[in-house]
């Protein structure tokens, strides 16, 4: 092999190794960081055709409506707990900290956290969208069984 070809070969091998290595790394990191989304009924009854239930200790996202009257605050420690609902069973979410501005009873929220009991989630993040009309798309889909509900034109409000 002449030196130029040898150099090219080396470069190509290096590139292939680089690509292979990075794909491996990406897949590994992905596996650890994909959080499945559940609704309260999926969490209790199982999700998908095989009715798979999450295991205790799993990191997941849950979305549902906050059941009015279930928000309980601990005045001293900023601990708060509330129930979420979509179409059936209730799931309790515990959280410590200040809730987002738009957290309100009866509104749709998404929480991210760890399942500590079959129906209890310890959340480290609670999201409520900054839009009074908002219902998370995932929640809307689960509750209403509709996909991409086209909003009425006049609900167009800001980013």
């Amino acid at each position: 092999m002449n030196p130029r070809r040898k150099k090219r070969l080396l470069v190509i091998i290096a590139v292939l190794f680089g690509i292979g290595g990075s794909i491996g790394l990406v897949l590994y990191a992905l596996q650890e960081n994909i959080n499945l989304f559940y609704t309260p009924s999926e969490l209790i009854d199982g999700k998908g055709p095989n009715k798979e239930k999450p295991h205790i200790g799993q990191k997941l996202r849950i979305g549902g409506m906050v059941v009015p009257g279930t928000v309980q605050r601990n005045e001293q420690s900023l601990k708060v707990s509330f129930d979420l609902i979509d179409t059936g069973p209730l799931v309790t979410v515990r959280y410590q900290g200040i809730l987002p501005d738009l957290f309100r009873e009866g509104q749709g929220i998404v929480a991210q956290g760890i399942l500590i009991e079959p129906n209890v989630i310890e959340a480290f993040e609670v999201l409520a969208k900054h839009d009074e009309e908002y219902m998370p798309a995932e929640v809307a889909e689960a509750v209403k069984g509709i996909k991409h509900e086209k909003p009425k034109y006049n609900l167009d409000s800001g980013s």
Partner: peptide, 28 residues
């Protein structure tokens, strides 16, 4: 691109809705 579009592809393939957490991007 992968981290942004994968949840979409995953959902459209009927595998359920997922999110890819910040740790993925941060780590990469």
């Amino acid at each position: 691109l992968l981290g942004t579009l994968l949840p979409l592809v995953h959902k459209e393939m009927g595998l359920g809705s997922i999110s890819i957490g910040e740790p993925f991007f941060n780590k990469m």
